[in-house]
Nucleic acid binder design. Structure first.
Lengths: 210, 210
DNA sequence: CTTTCTCCTAGACCGTCGGTCGATAGGACT
DNA sequence: AGTCCTATCGACCGACGGTCTAGGAGAAAG
């Protein structure tokens, strides 16, 4: 039987289903047929909306990055919070640990989902480096940060945060996390050139997440 | 027709061919048939030696990591070189830019080779963190480094080095490299807590590579 | 109400993939 | 010459990503 839906709705249905599957099972492990089963459409319909499986992945990655970017921007706008706090919160708002439904939290970085993660990382770095440019420059002017290469420092911090807390690239044990978070904040202080201990406030914020 | 070879030789033939293909074309883009064609064996023979395609990948990754580890260890042993230099050279010896044939140099990080890279990164970090543990501790005792979390600093430096110079995750333009290298060394200084400008010596060493 | 036209849907079909398996050739040893 | 084991072969399998064409739904025109 044939059911007709408005174009944009169908597209979104496919994206939603694919996103859940890609995150839960991994991109390579998800077949187009898996997606078809959930959305309840035929293969022709899928390929009417997307030229390939990887085009769906690209669209999803851009969505995820854009959601993070919007979160970051709305945090950075709020002048009632100290600049340093705003910047750190914007960075932390990129870590999927904090967002999304509970099930996805656990699964997103466990699986061999390297393709999704790499694409995400690339786009996220590009977008967030651009967003953080202005506030960091502001922080330098205010004398909060003491760095010579602001862009590269941002890149490094974003990269470290992602690789350590999203990717599980180090295979850390749960009991090691508190120390790893301390070490991370210590290193971020060095990379930003803040006063020592300036980021200690964020220890408990991180503590809550895991 | 059937040609019989000694077991270990056949295994190595497969590994060599697969390694070149995986690096040149990417893991996913290389089919088992591609490997068979080069080694000139039948599929059954391939699966007689390896249980799966990904088992070949694992073996190759371990090989590459072990080669890097051996390079690092032989550098670290040489007491005639100052400790800081030895450590930096050991880290740099992990960057594939420096090793391998010229063609591979260019291709290794270009392609969508996320699976190989992720596995490599994981194993390299594990192995190199362990190798660098002792020299870094020594450096702290000598007062060259001033850090509270040595293990995590090493992890961060190795990670940054790999992601920036191996993975091309930032899509840097060639003309940006000199500045990126400066910024990287600046940040490594911060992460190690050395005296400022202590790593300037390495600018030209890096400069040669790209 | 009927015709027409376009947008969307369906699913059979294709080539390729990673992986399996039974048959058998090669060489060493009796 | 016969036995045995190991290494080799390639036909075969199901599943995959992707193609193609036939045709149904629904709005617009008569």
């Amino acid at each position: 039987m044939k059911t007709v839906k408005e174009s944009e709705i169908r597209r979104q249905e496919i994206l939603v289903a694919a996103r859940e599957l890609f995150i839960k099972k991994g991109y390579e492990q998800t077949s187009v047929n898996d997606i078809l089963k959930i959305v309840d459409i035929a293969k022709g319909t899928f390929y009417y909306y997307f030229a390939s499986k990887s085009e769906v992945l690209d669209a999803i990655v851009l969505d995820i990055v854009e959601e993070g970017a919007r979160r970051a921007e709305s945090i950075l706008i709020d002048k009632s919070i100290p600049l340093l706090n705003r910047i750190m919160m914007a960075i932390m708002a990129q870590v999927p640990e904090f967002e999304g439904t509970d099930e996805i939290k656990v699964e997103i970085h466990k699986v061999e989902n390297t393709k999704l993660e790499r694409l995400y990382l690339r786009e996220m770095l590009k977008r967030m480096t651009q967003i953080l440019q202005k506030p960091i420059t502001e922080g330098i002017e205010l004398g909060i940060f003491h760095i010579e290469y602001p862009t590269e420092s941002i890149e490094s911090i974003l990269l470290l945060g992602h690789m350590m807390f999203d990717c599980d690239v180090f295979h850390w044990k749960v009991e090691d996390y508190p120390m790893k978070i301390k070490a991370f904040l210590f290193n971020v202080e060095k990379l930003l050139g803040t006063k020592e201990g300036e980021l200690d406030v964020f220890l408990k914020m991180f503590g809550q997440m895991k």
